[in-house]
Nucleic acid binder design. Structure first.
Lengths: 345, 345
DNA sequence: CTGTTAGCGCATTCAA
DNA sequence: TTGAATGCGCTAACAG
């Protein structure tokens, strides 16, 4: 009943155990068609289960010239933003029996490119690039070349968020959402407004800050009146930005953090300095990651349907029923005002 | 300069472009040894970059009989508990150039087994089973068989958390941590204590509840005096459990939720009913996922070093320098008392 | 419907 | 050191 330690059972063994040809065994075990007589079919199935046969996916991929895995490359799985998107992507991947290879770059452009290259080596059926790209000439050139090659050899890819690179994409309305925040703050009566920004070379950050400042300008608040503090795109970055604001005497009545994660860091700093929210300072984030509704005060933010983004993106690359023109799926951003924003005192 | 649309460049093409034999090309591009004359070596390297050659990982795996991917199977990537562990695992995987195939079972035992089988087909070098196993005879039998086969053919695997199955494992001190909570609550003066539990057939839940009740019993509080409410192991489950408690008139001064996620749900329900925490009811969770420190009140809990668990587990399977005896790495659990717990009124 | 045969792309003997 | 030949396990023509 043992398969022999150290070795895998091969199709050939199953075939001989079932007393049929290799091809027949292959047909019943892989080719879904019922082109095999029930009797032989059963013999093969029997032998396969008896021997605990598991096909060698590498051999299959090599012979068939196609694998069933897709790559999912992102900045950081530990970040709720990405893990939520991943969750959505895993849902549809699971339904399709598609295997997902995870790439967590820890925000290194080089590693992102490496992952794409590795995925290319794996003959991944598709690649999903999640998270904003880097606005860097070298990166754009290398990544562009890599993707072009990948596509040239039959691979599909899609971005989640802007990448300044051609290709299918799922695009949340970053600038629109930020603009909505700007208008809401102005409507509440805020005039002195600060922004806790991440690195501007991240396109997501650029779009959010841009949309925000533009809408503010339209509302009569010139860019020069808006204090933009640029820090890391992380909780620590938000913490640092808020600290700066406090040190400057909080010359604002509202603080827009370009991500919820940054807002959480800011909240911590503000709390340490006993800055009352929203009484002293209104605070608002972006993304609506699952936890921010549980904060005190509950964080106002712009909601993105993160899981849906993951699902849409995975569907996009799994169903290439598309023409040659890049497909771009625009997803709405919805303003969610909770307790952390109010009219200025 | 183009590779020819629709096809991948093969080693053979590189070899012929470099005017060397296939074997030589293979040696310089894969075999790390310097057994090739520098001149030829350079020619091959040149040709490879020029043609944008990327080795076919499937062919390599097939020929070499070994792949460099490891599987990471868990209940739900969207859950901070798992995504934190995943983050840790991805760190060491990244350092080793190991590819990670993600399996998110969405809490289905069948899918967990399926993933292991698929990973076996992929000839994954190792498999990490993260999250507690199911205490179910069928599951244990099938999973046990699957793993045995996998190991029999050279695969390594390890558990993160208990699985009631033989094998290497990284084991957080669930019962010890829960016991620490019990003692702390008693010391604070609590006598009427409730537990918001997940399904008892999850070993993690069983160990936490068990450790908690045992320690309570030792402190003179019999199990019969402790109200254990069993709900889903999720935010909703915590919400429901707390609601039950409220409906019962809150016949307790402290509520232990077996996970932070459940505690978050409980917190929501309690807030909706204006139950003051910790004044009316002390609340404590388990895991110390990143966000709970930011809640109001900051949640008391037992801290597990989640990322470390991921790192240790990945190291475990990647470095099989081990003897045949199962290696079990026990990780401490540290009680963290924050604002959500206090002496009963 | 079933069996035979020829690769898929590469690593690795074995000779040279 | 290098090259020619063999086979990894499987799918996909091609015959029968």
């Amino acid at each position: 009943m043992d398969t022999g330690t150290g070795r895998y059972v091969t199709l050939a063994q199953v075939a001989s155990a079932a007393k049929v040809s290799l091809a027949t065994a292959s047909r019943v075990l892989s080719g879904g068609e019922r082109v095999v007589r029930p009797e032989l079919r059963d013999r093969v199935l029997d032998a396969a289960t008896r021997l605990q046969y598991v096909p060698n996916a590498h051999a299959q991929a090599l012979a068939a010239g196609a694998s069933n895995t897709v790559g999912l490359v992102m900045h950081d799985v530990g970040d709720p933003y990405f893990s939520s998107i991943t969750r959505g992507a895993m849902q549809v991947a699971g339904e399709q029996g598609t295997l997902v290879v995870l790439g967590s770059t820890f925000r290194s452009p080089e590693r992102e490119i490496e992952y794409v290259s590795t995925l290319r080596a794996q003959r991944a059926r598709a690649i999903l690039l999640v998270g904003s790209g880097f606005d860097d000439a070298d990166y754009l050139r290398d990544m562009g070349r890599e993707l072009e090659n990948y596509q040239g050899s039959g691979g599909r890819y899609a971005f989640v968020s802007h990448h300044d690179l051609p290709g299918d994409a799922v695009l949340p309305d970053n600038s629109g959402g930020a603009a909505a925040i700007a208008r809401a703050l102005v409507e509440l009566g805020h005039r002195r407004i600060a922004v806790a920004s991440g690195p501007r070379n991240l396109s997501t950050v650029a779009h959010r800050v841009g949309g925000f400042l533009d809408a503010l300008a339209e509302a009569g608040i010139p860019r020069s009146d808006v204090q933009v503090i640029e820090r890391e795109f992380s909780e620590d970055g938000g913490y640092a930005a808020a600290n700066d604001l406090v040190k400057a005497g909080i010359p604002a009545t509202a603080l827009f953090c370009v991500s919820d994660i940054m807002a959480i860091g800011a909240l911590l700093a503000l709390r340490e300095h006993d800055v009352a929210i929203p009484d002293h300072l209104s605070l608002i984030g972006f993304d609506d990651i699952p936890i921010v509704r549980h904060l005190t005060p509950a964080l106002s933010t712009v909601a993105l349907d993160l899981e849906r983004m993951g699902r849409e993106a995975m569907s996009l690359v799994l169903h290439p029923e598309a023409p040659a023109t890049p497909r771009r799926i625009h997803l709405p951003a919805r303003l969610v005002l909770r307790a952390s924003t109010a009219a200025p005192r």
